[in-house]
Structures are given as C-alpha cells and as structure tokens.
Design a protein around this nucleic acid. Structure first.
Length: 567
RNA sequence: CGGGGCGUGGCGCAGCUUGGCAGCGCGCCUGCUUUGGGAGCAGGAGGUCAGAGGUUCGAAUCCUCUCGCCCCGACCA
C-alpha cells in the first residue's frame, strides 16, 4: 500500500479525555474515532489490525475442530423469554419494535440463538459433541463505558458454544477451548494467566478468565507465589489462619462501649486484635433480612454472597434494622429472628467479642456454637494480598489485569429451556451439556497495545501487525532514492509481503515518527545516505539499533526476519 | 444511578472570575526555500462559542433548563 494513497493519518494532538496508554495510542495512530460514548468507528488500518486478530482466532478455532456459523444481531424477544433472561440480563437488553409490532432484541450475547440452532440440528448422541462459534457485533448498554476500547457498548466478540452428551464430554471440550485460548493469546503476543472466576449473569458452574497482566487493568486478581492457584478477587478463596484463638466457656458478659461502632474502634478500645471480634453486617434481599457474620479482620465478598442467595444483596437501611430491633454499630447474631450466615473464618468453639443488639454495649465470651443463631456456615470473605493460598498455604500476590477471554461451563440450563435435547444409547431424551467461550476482539487489541508499547508508540507482534513492513523513501527529491524504494516495494509485494510504503512528500521526522507510532515490526529505509553504500537500513521496531543491508541481500534478510518463530 | 470536570474554526486549547472587535498552536490551501527525528518564510480559507430560554444598550462570559462527553464510585464481559 502506498501511503500517499491510503486512508490513514496520525494525530499530533489527542483529547485529554484519553487516559489509558492503549486509548491514547489507538487515537494518535489513527486506528479509531469515537462516535459516541463506548461506540467507535475503526479506520482502515484499525480494522485491519482487528482483522489480523480475527484471522488468528479463526485459525485456532478451526484447528480445534469448531465450526464457524453466523448468528443474528437482531433476535425476537421470545427466545430471551424462554431462557428467562429477558428481564434479568444486566445491562438491560436494548430492544425495538419491528413494523409488525414484534419486540426485537439487539443481541448482547448469543447463548439463546446458538442453543436454538443446536436444538434444530440435534437428534441423537451420534450428533455430539460439536462446537460452533462466530465473531459478531454485540451491543451492551453499559452504564459507564471507559478506557477506549477496553469497556465499550458495541464490540466484536468471538463466542463459541460447545455441546456434549455428558459432564465428561464437557470437561473435554472445556479443556480443548482453554488450550485453544492459550494458543490464541500467545500468538497475539500476550502473556495471560488463567484465573478462576465468577460466572456472573451468564450462569454456570466452573468458569475461568484469561487475564493480561497490566497495572492499568480494571480487574484485580490473586495468584499464589508457590503453586499455580490464581483467581479473580470476586472468586478468590484463601486459607483462614486461626492461630491462638481464645478458648473458654465463661458466661457471656456485657461490656460498656459507648459510641464505639466500628471494629477498628472496638479493637483499639479493648486492646484486642480484630480477629477476636465478630463483625456482623445485615443485608436485605427479597425474602427478608439476612445477617452475615465474619471474623473482624476480614471483609465480606458480596459476589460470593450473591451466588449463595441467587440475588444481589443490598445493605439494610437503618430503618430496616430498627424494624427488627437491631442497632447499627452494635449488631450481633445473638437472639435474632432473621436468617443468619456465618463465614467459615469463625471458629464456632472459640470465644469472641460481638455486638449485643443494645446501644453502647458489646458482649464478650461469646462462643458462636453456644450463643449465636446461625443457619449456615459458608465462605463469604474477600481475599487480600498476603493471605494464604487455599491449596498450598503459599502467599497470595495481588495483580491488576485486563480480562481478554472468559470461559464457562454452562451445564444444561440453556439446553433444557430452549430444547437442545438428544436421545442417548438407551433411548432416553437428555439435555445436551453446554459450555461457552468468549473473547472480546477490540479489547484484545487494546490489551496487546497496553502490554506492548514504548514512549514512541505501539510495538506490534508480527502475527497481528496491520502491515509487515514499513518502507520509507526518505528523500523525495532524489530520483535514485525514488527508484530504489519503488524497486524494493514492487519486489517485496511480489514476495507476498504486506508493505506500507511511506512515499509521502513529508519530512524525515514525520515519516520516522509515524513509523515508530504505528509499530510495524520491521522498518526498511532508503535514503541518499544508505544508497551511498548501496544498501538499505533495516530496523526491527523493538531493536535499539538499525543495520545497513546491501540491496542484493535485503530480501533474504527480510525472509530471515519473518521466518523466525518468535512474535 | 451518586460525586466531580468539560463543551469555543478540522484537531488540541486560551478567553468566562470583573459582559464591550472571536484568539492561540497544530492541521488545511497557494508560492518559494528546505530534506536523517513531527522544517522555514510569506500570503490565505475556515467559527450558529453544544442547544433553548432569560437578564442587559450589549452575552462565549451572568441566570434557568436541556443535550452530549470524560473521570471517580456503584454495576458489569
């Protein structure tokens, strides 16, 4: 491509609205233009980068034996009513009425249509297993789009759906997709770690996220320093140390604690470490109030609580508490009429300080097993860095990252609701067992740039760079430079290299800066200076120094560069 | 949805406090010069100051409402 004829300009200045490096670089390098909040135009070069990523995804998915399909953007709401997600999907579905008066949904994801397609195909166990996938535009009306391409409302997403006859089959498909994902991300030049994750509104049991580590990322993950356990903060479990707990069987006593309503304050007032105190928080949900008690040094993980309750817990208001005779700041699970959960950090045989449900008093010598009401003991605590790994007791490190892929074991929920049944060997009709696997393509591009850039610009890996070679003719007034750079351009094209030839009538500074900004892996430069030595300057984007290669050898040298396996 | 910020030629911004000719840089057009790290000189085009209403002799500037965008939080792939 001759740059003088191409639809591409870089920007000297970008809006101060952009804060993330990937966002700034995508704008500055002329890849995207914002149309409205969370919705972007892609320029030819920006879309070309997206296409390269898609190409990697297609190759790896096909290699894994998955079949490409296309599922529609516009879908009848009926399918969503069947799956039960028409009202529960968050963010809410965007919809419109067609001219027949039917309500149509602009699809935020494609479980419903994928299952619908599978249901029409699926008759027998002989039809299983299979994986179908597509790359399609999805629309999600996020409350707060942000950070350029990282959190948007309309985006390209690769979605795959696996169908198996049983759990073991699903395990195989799930493993295959994980392997495929690892290949995709590696080929895109990203280091990702796989973490255990919460499945959120998609539903299902096992779920893993693929996280590209970046300090600017919006997800917090914990990984063990001595084994391979890793999980995001919503899901992370940890080993709860209970060293030197207080034992005893003394009677409960009131302690006067005027105006002391926080664990921190109480710990200081009594000169007692926080883990000897039980913290109680009351939440409101549809069936009523629920009290959650946890060791005072820990915090409640509301995602774990939501998964247990199957709905979003909301903190109870002061009024809710008063209606049940409870007092903010002095809550306790003793003698309460509402449901009660204990976090498993609490040792029910040990002695603790708790609230008293009376103003200005706490209780000591509280032995939960003897003195507290509780219905269930579960894990509802939030991990923190330095806590001990649930598997090996090593230490958990905290990192930030960008979620680039998410895989779920869905089970039979969708296949039951949408009728994706098959007949097994014994003649029974059974729902197929599903998994689903997503990659945000635009987000992946942003994550690659976030991970691979320097002060001057992007550093693309060879696999997904929008062009392979950035060729510059540095001195436009020299006929010899023009001739030789044209010669290189034509011959590189014949060798099937995708060359961006910067033949613009611009000054050297402009051309060099644009080539660094764009970050094509290899730059070739022809100038009066290089031609005085019958050579061409050869510079990989990530190399410190350029080198001069003679014109006879330049094609071999380029082949050598592109045949090396690294990205 | 709560808190904060912003909206002025194509892009980036100043001007607004204290009302009085619509400014700057970049880009763009023409000409000459220049050519290894975002060139120089000269000339030129381009603006309903987000929108509506109000106050005033006079509003980019003050008041009211509306719309849009960004950041933090909540929520979320």
């Amino acid at each position: 491509m001759r740059l003088s004829k191409y639809f591409w300009k870089t920007l000297r200045e970008i809006s101060s609205d952009a804060e993330m490096e990937s966002h700034k670089l995508l704008l500055k390098a002329g890849f995207i233009q914002q149309v409205t909040s969370g919705i972007f135009n892609y320029t030819p070069i920006g879309w070309k980068a997206i296409s390269k990523i898609k190409e990697v995804i297609f190759q790896e998915m096909n290699l894994a034996g998955a079949f490409e399909v296309n599922l529609p953007v516009n879908q009848p709401i009926d399918l969503w009513e069947k799956s039960g997600r028409s009202k529960t999907f968050v963010p809410p579905l965007a919809s419109f009425e067609d001219r027949r008066g039917n309500e149509m949904v602009i699809a935020p994801t494609h479980e419903e249509t994928a299952t619908f397609l599978a249901a029409s195909y699926l008759d027998s166990y002989r039809d299983l297993p299979f994986i179908i996938y597509h790359i399609q535009t999805k629309f999600r009306d996020e409350t707060r789009p942000r950070a350029g391409l990282l959190r948007v409302r309309e985006f390209e997403m690769k979605d795959a759906y696996s169908f198996d006859k049983d759990e073991e089959g699903l395990d195989d498909s799930y493993r295959t997709m994980i392997k495929t994902y690892e290949n995709i991300f590696r080929r895109c030049g990203l280091d990702v770690i796989k973490v255990e994750a919460d499945s959120g509104p998609i539903g299902g049991k096992d779920s893993s996220e693929f996280i590209s580590i970046a300090s600017s990322g919006e997800d917090t993950i914990f990984s063990c320093d001595s084994c391979d356990y890793a999980a995001n903060s919503e899901k992370a479990e940890f080993f709860k140390l209970d060293a030197d707990k207080l034992s005893g069987n003394e009677d409960i006593k009131d302690i006067e604690t005027p105006n002391i309503t926080t664990i921190k304050g109480l710990s200081k007032f009594l000169n007692l470490s926080k883990d000897k105190i039980i913290k109680t928080v009351v939440y409101k949900f549809s069936k009523g109030l629920i009290s959650v008690s946890i060791r005072g040094d820990l915090d409640i993980n509301e995602t774990k609580l939501r998964n247990y309750l199957n709905e979003d817990p909301k903190p109870a208001t002061k009024k809710d508490l008063e209606n049940h005779g409870l007092i903010e700041g002095y809550l306790s699970a003793r003698n309460i009429k509402i449901s009660s959960i204990l976090d498993d950090s609490i040792d029910i045989d040990s002695s603790y300080v708790t609230g008293s449900n009376k103003e200005n008093y706490h209780l000591k010598n509280v032995i939960p097993k003897r003195d507290l009401n509780y219905d269930e003991i579960i894990d509802v605590s939030l991990a923190q860095k330095g806590f001990n790994c649930i598997r090996c007791k090593g230490f958990l490190n905290e990192k930030r990252g960008i979620e680039v892929g998410h895989v779920f074991k869905l089970g039979t929920g969708y296949s039951e609701k949408l009728g994706a049944y098959f007949i097994d060997q014994k003649g029974n009709s059974l729902p197929s067992v599903m998994g689903c696997y997503g990659i945000g393509v635009g987000r992946l591009l942003a994550a690659v740039i976030e991970a691979r850039h320097d002060k001057k610009g992007i550093i693309f890996p060879k696999t997904i760079a929008p062009f392979q070679i950035y060729l510059i003719n540095l001195n436009n007034e020299s006929q010899e430079v023009l001739d030789k750079s044209n010669y290189l351009y034509e011959n590189l094209k014949k060798l099937n290299y995708d060359v961006l030839f910067d033949d613009r009538n611009e000054t050297p500074g402009v051309k060099l800066n644009d080539s660094d900004l764009l970050g094509i892996p290899l730059r070739l430069l022809v100038s009066k200076r290089t031609l005085s030595e019958q050579s061409v300057e050869f510079k990989p984007r990530d190399a410190e120094q350029s080198k001069l290669i003679s014109i006879e050898e330049i094609f071999q040298e380029v082949d050598r560069f592109y045949n090396s396996i690294d990205t």
